[in-house]
């Protein structure tokens, strides 16, 4: 599903050592785009975002968050705005396979990184990702508003190896608030999906 990106810089794993692990991707974002983006011309800047395997060219206000770029400029409204200040997790997306908050990410700073939103999680044929199916099977949501963020966070939680025990899952899913209180069923869903997920 994820295309390899040619806009990323050379891998620095060699420099940092094998233990660099998770952060290698983010550490290595040496940009191949213009270094300066001005507040001139009404503050609009051109940028290219790689989302769900496709490049999207935008010309938006330099202040635009990645979340607003997705929602207001690309009609990718699956990523939700619940607080817009990094406190609820509803806007969680995968960036270079890590879960991050799109509300606290400037869109312009996300250039050159691989962004996966809920719309990009199912297969090209529309087949649900095992985590999506597990959320349905376990009724792991009620209103559904936090659900895209929960699911992307859950996918990362499993990939990180943080889904071994119930306590581990609960701790590492605590960045995604669910006001309806579906938490125990989210844990069940993750336990169902973890064995069905391929690595990476």
């Amino acid at each position: 599903m994820h295309q390899s990106s040619d806009t990323r810089g050379p891998s620095r794993r060699g420099v940092m050592g094998a233990a660099a692990g998770l952060a290698a991707g983010s550490a290595a974002r040496v940009a191949a785009q213009p270094a300066v983006s001005g507040a001139e011309s009404g503050g609009h800047v051109a940028m290219r975002l790689q989302i769900n395997g496709h490049d999207h060219d935008l010309n938006v206000d330099v202040r635009t968050s990645l979340l607003d770029a997705l929602r207001e400029h690309l009609d990718l409204t699956g990523s939700k705005k619940g607080c817009d200040q990094g406190q609820c997790g509803a806007c969680t997306v995968l960036i270079d396979d890590q879960r991050e908050l799109s509300c606290l990410t400037l869109a312009i700073a996300a250039q050159g990184r691989r962004i996966t939103t809920i719309e990009g999680l199912a297969g090209a044929d529309g087949a649900l990702h095992p985590m999506q199916q597990a959320f349905i099977d376990n009724d792991a949501f009620q209103c559904g508003y936090c659900t895209p963020g929960q699911i992307l966070s859950a996918v990362a939680c499993v990939a990180e190896g943080h889904a071994t025990t119930d306590a581990d899952i609960q701790e590492h899913m605590s960045g995604n608030l669910c006001r309806c209180g579906a938490y125990p069923k989210i844990v069940l869903a993750i336990k169902q999906a973890r064995g069905q997920m391929g690595r990476g």
Binding site: R71, G78, Q132, I136, I151
Partner: peptide, 21 residues
């Protein structure tokens, strides 16, 4: 009975008010 709107909610297709284009 699983929710009939489950697929819409897990895929991001469910449109909440501010998602409506």
């Amino acid at each position: 009975t699983p929710r009939i709107d489950g697929v819409a909610k897990v895929t991001g297709a469910a449109r909440y008010a501010s998602d409506e284009p």
